[in-house]
Simulated assay, not measured.
Amino acid sequence: MELNGLTTGIASAKDEAALLALINLVQPHVPWTRAHLYWQFFDLPAGPAKLYVIRDGDAIVSLYAAIPQILEVEGHSLEARMVQDVMTHPDFRGRGFLHHLAGVCLDNINQSDIAGYTFPNDRSEKSFRRGGWSELCEVPHRSKDLRGHIHSGVSLRIEPLDGLFGEWATEVWNVAGLSVGVRRDAQFLNWRYGKPDNKYYKYLIEDDRGLLVLKLYSDGVSGVLHILELVLGIRARDLLPEVLAFCFDFAAGHGAQTVTAWLANGHPYAPQLDAAGLVIKPMRKRFVFVHAPAAYARRVEDAAAWHLTQGDSDVF
């Protein structure tokens, strides 16, 4: 790769203006504000993002972002990086910049003995195959058509959470009995659902037996309800059918025609989602790739072991 006077390095909060300039040039349809930039890159509970960049003077012309999260694997905490927000200025494309930054990022992951995961689309997934990542699965996209839905009148106590998640939420995660997934403790949940300029519907299930986070989306013609988080203590899994019925009632009551969720086959909740009609309908446009230290690879590379939801994606 020929840099021809350009330099590589790590960006920080001091590069706010240069980062926003590149991001909003490349994706003007989803512009970022300063608040979004700090939420996404610098105010995470696991620490600031690793932002691998190539610079042309004061300008950033290529960005490869790796967001820190804490992955829980069979009760063990493992630092991880979620690769996202990968882009190059249009005037500098075709020079191998992202391939170079991807190699630097993966070397850093390997040297630090941490894990990585990412959700590339069908245009970028080949670069992860070539780069030594392992394909976990296609994104396990589930959906249910609500046309003809009849209100079920759920009697379960599912109450809105108006404030922050407390330590009760951490305890729900601790007793959920889930094998692999980003740790859903109170810190993570409060950061994740503090995303600027987004509205989330947060709920407690039977006081402290579970938690639920929903998001409505409408394109002006049709509406969709996304189930972003649904975690139950292992002894509360029998509540799942009623929780799903609540979600369907909520969606229909807000004019949504479709409910979506992510959850892999083999997950403890999967049979109940299937029975409720919330079934996997692969989109074949987005994939899940992972990379893990040898000691954790067997479990991290097992799609059925993962608690993978739409809340893991920054899109929602």
Results as ranks from 00 to 15, higher is better:
W191H: 10
L225V: 03
H149M: 09
E16D: 02
N121P: 05
Y38V: 08
R286L: 10
Y117D: 01
F92H: 13
I70M: 09
A80R: 01
Y64G: 02
P293C: 00
Y200Q: 02
R157I: 01
L101I: 06
G153P: 10
V300T: 02
G277T: 04
C247A: 10
Q187N: 11
I23F: 10
N108C: 10
Q40T: 03
Q111D: 13
G210Q: 13
P90G: 06
Y38N: 12
F248W: 08
S155C: 11
H267N: 00
F188P: 00
D302E: 11
E171H: 13
C105D: 07
A261H: 01
L63C: 06
L164E: 15
A256H: 00
T33C: 08
L6Y: 11
E79L: 12
G163K: 07
K50T: 07
F42Y: 04
L98Q: 05
M87R: 14
A294F: 07
I150L: 15
K281A: 09
G5Q: 01
T33F: 09
I10D: 05
P282S: 12
A18H: 04
D122H: 11
T170Q: 04
K281V: 10
L3K: 00
P241Y: 04
A245M: 12
V172H: 05
L6R: 14
A294M: 05
R34E: 04
V30E: 06
F119A: 11
E16A: 04
L156K: 12
D122E: 13
F246S: 03
V182H: 06
V259D: 05
H291E: 07
G47V: 09
Y38P: 04
